[in-house]
């Protein structure tokens, strides 16, 4: 069968190039914003996001705010004794003074013994690797204004951030001294799900818990909204562009129908053209995104997984398909006679 779709593209390069570049630009923007959304969310909550699946618990009176949660010690003991995969943890924002007395903002994290978090002895600290860039080395001595002793840097862990600050893992005893608390904020139950309830505790899935972090949900919501707006806009662009093109081609469609082309073939031509345009445009913006990933400035959180890219590309194709098809409904309506009576195209 003759490839009419491709022959038309070759003869109207400019027209299709314009649509292609619009799709390219919109998809590039979508990929980059999605990469930023994901990067920011990593930067904001990698500590939590990178945990395996499980369930979080906090004090039912804490108003869904981990900061306000104080789990009763007896409740916690009972839970930790009964569930061997449970870990209690606490998180608070704070500062460490480095050897040159510069304040470094960190998120202090402490936990009961668990394979999920590094084990830290009293007077020691394990830091997120981003602290290395600030000139801190293994063996350095750090201090905290609320802490009587000193922290010796024992090592670094990769990609462990909370609320955009590098995480500092410290021992429970030291944590309790700094924040003058006796209780832990959270219990994480590895592999747990919403079916497990404990008296006096409110349970959260990982995603639910992430959403209780105020900056996290605000950030993600606005970025995701932009991403979906862009996706919808690109769908509209497809629809409008193909609509305008189809309107100009009503006469041609009529003639093709008059000489006996099936309507389904006319639709296939349109779909083929949509794919001819979209696939190279998407490929180009994926490549450029990877380049952007490389050259993005150090401090810019950008993370675009292959999975996200593939999902978004698929969404683009589906949206393009729907847009083109909706605008193509007019093809179905074209009467061959109309075109003949319309005169020269």
């Amino acid at each position: 069968m003759m490839n009419l779709a491709w022959k038309e593209i070759k003869k109207s390069k400019v027209r299709f190039l314009i649509l292609g570049s619009i799709v390219f630009l919109v998809s590039l923007l979508t990929f980059i914003i999605s990469g930023l959304a994901n990067g920011l969310s990593q930067d904001n909550a990698a500590l939590i996001k990178d945990l395996p699946n499980g369930q979080f618990y906090m004090d039912a009176d804490a108003d869904e705010t981990y900061n306000l949660s104080r789990i009763d010690n007896s409740t916690m003991e009972k839970l930790l004794n009964n569930e061997k995969d449970a870990t209690a943890l606490s998180i608070q924002m704070g500062f460490l003074n480095d050897e040159s007395d510069k304040q470094q903002s960190v998120a202090f994290v402490t936990s009961t013994d668990s394979k999920l978090f590094p084990h830290v002895k009293s007077g020691e600290v394990i830091l997120d690797r981003s602290m290395e860039d600030k000139g801190i080395k293994v063996g350095d001595t750090l201090t905290n204004n609320q802490f009587s002793g000193e922290f010796i840097v024992k090592g670094f862990v990769d990609q462990t951030k909370f609320s955009h600050a590098p995480v500092a893992f410290i021992n429970i005893k030291n944590y309790k001294e700094i924040y003058r608390v006796n209780e832990m904020q959270l219990v994480f139950l590895l592999g747990g799900d919403s079916s497990q309830e404990f008296a006096g505790l409110q349970s959260f899935s990982k995603q639910d818990f992430l959403n209780t972090i105020p900056s996290y949900s605000a950030e993600q919501m606005s970025l995701n909204m932009i991403v979906w707006f862009l996706v919808v806009i690109s769908g509209l662009l497809f629809a409008i562009f193909f609509y305008m093109m189809n309107v100009q081609k009503i006469g041609l469609y009529g003639i093709l129908k008059a000489i006996g082309l099936k309507t389904s073939r006319l639709f296939r031509i349109m779909w083929a053209q949509m794919i001819f345009i979209t696939v190279p445009a998407l490929a180009l913006s994926i490549v450029l995104c990877q380049v952007f990933n490389r050259i993005a400035p150090e401090g810019m959180p950008f993370s675009l997984t292959m999975e996200t890219t593939a999902t978004l590309s698929l969404v683009f194709l589906i949206i393009g398909f729907i847009g083109a098809t909706l605008s193509g409904i007019q093809i179905k309506k074209v009467e061959p006679l109309q075109a003949i009576q319309q005169g020269e195209m």
Binding site: L4, K7, E8, K10, K11, S12, G251, L252, I255, L256, K257, A258, I259, G260, L261, K262, A339, I340, G343, E344, M345
Partner: peptide, 21 residues
């Protein structure tokens, strides 16, 4: 449509050729 495609031929006042072929 099938009859038009294989048994009939058409010529009109204007040629109505496909512009990109």
């Amino acid at each position: 449509r099938q009859i038009r495609a294989s048994e009939f031929g058409f010529v009109f006042q204007f040629a109505h050729l496909v512009p990109f072929l």
